[in-house]
Simulated scan of single mutants.
Amino acid sequence: MTMNKADGCLTGTTSESSNLDAAVALFHSLSDSARLAIVRRLADGEARVVDLIGELGLAQSTVSAHVACLRDCGLVTGRPEGRQVFYSLTRPELLDLLVSAETLLAATGNAVALCPTYGTRSGTVATPGTQEAHR
């Protein structure tokens, strides 16, 4: 992608646009507070849905829907063991992305939280599970 100096717009080839679409999908998959909490928890190691319910304080249906979304996006995988499924992150690079995001947030302070479009109201984060599980 290249920046057009005249109007400040990004321009690029179809391939670059496709890569941008994939990046948008990745960040959208992490944009829900419940999904992000699940990913952060799985960064510490695998867990079952029942573990996530207890640790995150979310309803079973919420956790199941969000885990399914993350699985469909290729970010989480399940390892069946008997009647249980242990979920884990599929790629260690996701941990690098989370660390980079935390570094960026620390460097910018509350700038993102104050964004009028995507920021949080009064600096508070939306309650997990209040957004749709998967669009």
Rank of each mutant, 00 (worst) to 15 (best):
N4T: 12
N4M: 09
L10E: 06
S18E: 15
N19A: 14
L20R: 13
A23T: 08
V24T: 08
L26E: 01
F27S: 15
F27R: 06
S29R: 14
D32R: 14
A37T: 04
I38Y: 06
L42S: 12
L42I: 13
A43F: 02
G45D: 03
A47M: 06
R48C: 09
V49C: 11
V50I: 14
I53H: 00
I53R: 09
G54C: 04
G54F: 02
S61L: 11
C69K: 13
D72K: 07
C73Y: 00
L75C: 09
L75W: 02
V76A: 06
T77D: 10
P80A: 14
E81K: 05
R83W: 02
Q84N: 04
V85W: 01
L94W: 01
L95A: 15
L97C: 08
V99G: 00
S100W: 01
A101Y: 01
T103K: 11
T103R: 11
T103I: 01
A113V: 03
C115E: 06
T117G: 01
Y118W: 13
R121D: 03
G123F: 00
G123L: 00
T124I: 03
V125Y: 12
A126S: 12
P128A: 00
P128C: 00
P128S: 04
T130I: 10
Q131E: 01
H134V: 12
